[in-house]
Nucleic acid binder design. Structure first.
Lengths: 171, 171
DNA sequence: TAGGTTTGTTTCAAACTTGAACCAAGCCTG
DNA sequence: CAGGCTTGGTTCAAGTTTGAAACAAACCTA
């Protein structure tokens, strides 16, 4: 089949999107590096942990939520642990398991950095979009993400319900 | 002033967006790494060059179009040059200048990889969006990008027209 | 035109990411 | 319960990114 090239509208949208996402991530990384001494992803790790039951999560669950590889997460967690912002704990139900638990220091860092981060996201993103556009962005993003997460490995809906691999905090 | 936290709608949109952009970039990087042996950014460098007059561009102009730092570009161009996909040339009008020029090999690689790349972008993105959403995505992206590019250094509109630092290909 | 500032680019070390390989522990199935 | 497959996590080397510092050439301006 001959290639279905992008239409001019699609080209424009694609280029605009690529540019915007690059610029936005860069700006957010810079802000957080400045104010919290860590890149966006690392901040997100702390943030996700802070909202999890008992402020702890298994590595795989964490990686899944953040949409990153386990290897990448291992590296990041090692750094954050060195900084004392989280602690690794053993999982008592599964000896292979490793749990990342936010420390008080970690929570404090998050707490201090959150206002600045939110302000940045707001001023760079939401202040520039109408309410309608916020909804559109969510829908578009959800559509994209959905396509990229069809696990392929996940059983059909009438199959065994997807077994939770671990209790939320496994302890 | 007390922090204006994100509304639930904004939270959802933000998280969906972050997840989607991560997943999408990853998928595209993987595809291009597979099929062209280089990450998305490197492919974009070749692509931008291929559309420029004489298939060449000054480093700074290239960096500006791609929204990346000059340092990042230097590294990437060095690699691509080693691979023989582009060549660095001196700029005769400005001895500081360096020009990246696409080689025939570079063009050939691009040519071979383009259909697969487009197919990927299409299937992961455009096939999942309505025509309307494509327009929305462009507008949203443009709004974001605009906010992030107000150079601050750029002169006011009634000032001297922004001097082009280099002719398109400077040769 | 000398001296100072700006611009274009590279360099360097430190940090981060990638993907494949590895190891251990859990989970079968015969 | 043994062998074999799967899952959870880390390790390692190679590749990439970052940001500050270094240079050199160009551009003032007195």
């Amino acid at each position: 089949m001959t290639t279905r090239w992008l239409t001019p509208e699609e080209q424009r949208a694609w280029r605009a999107y690529v540019a915007a996402s690059l610029l936005l991530e860069d700006a957010i990384d810079r802000q957080l590096q400045q104010d919290a001494g860590m890149p966006h992803l690392y901040y997100s790790i702390l943030s996700v942990l802070s909202e999890s039951p008992e402020r702890r999560l298994r590595m795989t669950d964490l990686a899944e939520r953040l949409k990153i590889t386990r290897s990448r997460l291992t590296y990041a967690v090692t750094r954050l642990e060195k900084d004392g912002l989280l602690r690794r704990e053993a999982c008592r139900y599964d000896k292979r398991g490793s749990i990342a638990a936010l420390t008080d220091d970690g929570f404090a860092v998050l707490d201090r950095a959150a206002p600045g981060h939110v302000e940045t996201v707001r001023s760079l993103l939401f202040d520039r979009l109408s309410e309608e556009q916020v909804g559109q962005l969510e829908e578009i993003s959800a559509a994209i993400a959905q396509g990229l997460q069809e696990d392929g490995a996940r059983p059909a809906s009438d199959d065994v319900p997807w077994r939770r691999r671990s209790s939320p905090a496994c302890s």
